[in-house]
Design a protein around this nucleic acid. Structure first.
Lengths: 204, 204
DNA sequence: ATCGCTCTCTACCGTTCGGTAGACAACCCC
DNA sequence: GGGGTTGTCTACCGAACGGTAGAGAGCGAT
């Protein structure tokens, strides 16, 4: 009975679905649970999204847009190579800090196959191209070690996402807690790792 | 009717379960499908493993043992720092090449929470300790850039596993195929990345 | 020959899941 | 104030799932 109105309910459902798809996986999350967490019946959810698959697509699209916004905003006004690279990493870690299930959902999107992942990645394609050009120009300038820029971007992606999603592994290997401080520490570690991997080798 | 005998059937079921848990996720894989893929009824599977959870535990244990074997064998007779590090990466990539769902299953194990992951990681704990000592001694000798060795191991883990499991991402970012050649290329890329990240910085 | 053990099967149960049908209430417009 | 639209609900369905009960086939030992 308490009517919340169309678009707001829609986006609330998508956000909750991203949380649960990320935490439980697509197959493991149920429409009942997602709806209940929003304070609504499953049939109301199905009023907005005609099927579980349609809900997933909406989540993929929304996640892509959200990440693109966050990264684009982080890049505003940044000029230097390291400034820009670190700003992106910092922005992604910030998003993960306030929305821990977000990187989990992104990883789940990759797991669901190329078709699902494209829905997410399509929105990010302009940024992807900018990143590749950025890395390429860094190599041309001698600020970045020469290598395949696309492959390098992929490796950077896995390092960041892995660091944000493999909490169980982190716990087993390092014995880390889940606090904010631990997340910041991981961010510093990733930045240092990436920086070391990018820097050109002066000798040897 | 065709009796295959106890232990062999048991391990066949575990291998198939690892495949399907890795491909579909724990929640997404069904006992019916796993049993059918082995050519047997679900109730036969439940004769060997009293529940889905018990089957998962057997898979986690078996996966841990398998990976420990593969790594230990790869280390035999290797002496140099890079020789040993690269041998481990090469061994893991080799395992992933002949059993693509294996790294997927490992990642799924991490997703299922610390309790599940411990079942897998417990077997690997001696190797984990050796790796940390190895990295620490490398730092003491000046062959590896100084940093927290446990955290470094975690970052290396995410780089390797990510590179082996994020096929959809790789496809979206690089446009890569799934061929053997592509896998070898990724291995070279990971080795180069890790090596660059490990090397001590001579200046700057 | 038969007893007992190992292994695999058919049959079935209760629950949960994604999805459908349709009643009904609130709101807007005229 | 009646009609259409939008949003939320109750009730229900068929399929799939994890798991139980129990029959029976093959086989080795006595």
């Amino acid at each position: 009975m308490p009517r919340t109105g169309g678009e707001e309910r829609r986006s609330t459902l998508v956000e909750e679905a991203i949380r649960q798809f990320g935490r439980e996986g697509y197959a493991g999350a149920s429409l009942d649970d997602i709806a209940r967490a929003v304070g609504v019946r499953k049939q109301t959810l199905l009023y907005y999204f005609s099927s579980k698959d349609a809900l997933l697509e909406a989540c993929l699209h929304a996640a892509g847009i959200r990440l693109a916004e966050v990264i684009a905003q982080a890049l505003e006004g940044k000029e230097g190579y390291w400034e820009r690279a670190e700003a992106v990493i910092h922005a992604v870690f910030g998003l993960a800090s306030e929305w821990p299930e977000f990187p989990m959902f992104v990883r789940e999107a990759g797991r669901l196959g190329p078709l699902a992942f494209e829905r997410f990645a399509d929105v990010l394609d302009p940024l992807r191209r900018r990143a590749v050009e950025f890395l390429q120009s860094g190599m041309d300038d001698g600020q970045v070690r020469k290598q395949d820029p696309a492959m390098l971007l992929f490796t950077l992606y896995t390092a960041v996402v892995g660091s944000l999603t493999e909490a169980s592994v982190l716990n087993a290997v390092v014995g880390a807690d889940k606090s904010r401080a631990s997340l910041r520490r991981r961010e510093r570690e990733v930045v240092a790792f990436v920086r070391a991997a990018l820097e050109p080798v002066p000798d040897r």
